[in-house]
């Protein structure tokens, strides 16, 4: 897939602003960005649902603007929003989806059994889709795309609502399919997933591509945003967290609700660590453990997006 200066305006506002990138065959291409960055709009254009305002793309050898039907015959799409046939049970829903894609009956049966087993849907295969939980319905929605043949699969946050076991099973299944030749265009907000699955990642912010590289390279290049993790003997301290958040060296501070550990994203861990001890003393709490954590893709992502937004602020200021 080759995307060239693709743009989409809503009124005067660009939702997607001259994005260009290439996706290779059998590649998992991650497309990451904050909410409203333009990920779904890009997918809607590349799947021919939405006309671009300008620019173009070549998808599977076909022109986006003139050969939409040929593109749609060879892609699969899992939308971000729910999609299901409300009058059918799970098995019939899968069967009719295969039917409208013109998959022969015997082939449909084989594939339905395969996805039911792989996605753990045996216990609710006869249940009406309207009665399923959000996670179960999401499983059906993802599994459904594997009933028909395709060369390129668009996945728009496919793991929302899935439990960790099903999520891992899905990611492993996707890897298997990629080994067999499938190409995947993947968006998610769970960056561990992107790191696990993607060969390359594009980061999009406010409609523009900020960076494209492998996860490892992104971490290396933007790893100046390091993380310091620490725990307090007292569990937590709102006063310390509030004071630390306002420090100039701290990009982001989050507390893990499970372990109670604080994670500080910073470019200067060497100055943040003494600051943590100083604040702990001031607020009469004790630091029980502290260490500099390995840079994650999430840290790199936050750094990239923050840098981009700061750059835009400066541009606006100069303008």
């Amino acid at each position: 897939m080759g995307v060239n200066q693709l743009s989409r305006l809503y009124g005067d506002k660009p939702a997607v602003d001259r994005v260009s990138f290439d996706v290779e065959r059998s590649e998992v291409f991650g497309f990451l960005g904050p909410n409203g960055a333009g990920k779904t709009t890009t997918i809607k254009m590349l799947t021919t649902l939405l006309q671009p305002t300008s620019g173009g793309a070549n998808v599977l050898g076909f022109d986006l603007k003139t050969e939409g039907r040929k593109i749609r015959e060879r892609i699969g799409v899992v939308q971000q929003q729910d999609s299901f046939d409300q009058g059918l049970n799970v098995e019939t829903s899968l069967d009719i989806y295969g039917l409208i894609w013109n998959v022969p009956r015997t082939e449909r049966k084989t594939r339905i059994e395969e996805v039911i087993a792989r996605f753990g849907m045996e216990e609710f295969r006869k249940m009406p889709t309207v009665d399923l939980s959000a996670g179960q319905r999401r499983r059906v929605q993802v599994a459904r795309e594997f009933i028909h043949d395709m060369d390129l699969l668009f996945l728009d946050e496919p793991t929302v609502g899935l439990d960790p076991i099903v999520r891992r099973a899905l990611l492993d299944y996707l890897k298997e399919r990629v080994h067999k030749g499938l190409t995947i265009f993947f968006t998610t907000h769970i960056l561990e997933e992107a790191e696990y699955l993607c060969d390359r990642i594009a980061v999009i912010n406010q409609g523009r591509i900020v960076q494209i590289d492998t996860p490892e390279n992104l971490k290396r290049r933007f790893g100046s945003a390091r993380a310091v993790e620490f725990k307090l003997l007292q569990g937590s301290s709102e006063a310390l967290a509030s004071a630390l958040s306002s420090s100039a060296d701290v990009t982001r501070l989050v507390q893990d609700s499970g372990t109670g550990a604080y994670r500080v994203t910073t470019t200067r861990p060497e100055s943040v660590i003494p600051e943590i001890y100083r604040l702990a003393e001031r607020h009469a709490v004790t630091v029980s453990s502290i260490y500099i954590a390995e840079t994650t893709l999430e840290d790199a992502f936050i750094h990239m997006v923050t840098d981009d937004e700061n750059g835009r602020e400066t541009e606006r200021g100069l303008g």
């Binding site: 799409v77 729910d82 409208i100």
Partner: peptide, 17 residues
Amino acid sequence: FDRKNGMFEQILMGPFT
């Protein structure tokens, strides 16, 4: 029904006009 249940977009992203 198709618009409410997301099947409208799903079908239009399939091999149909």
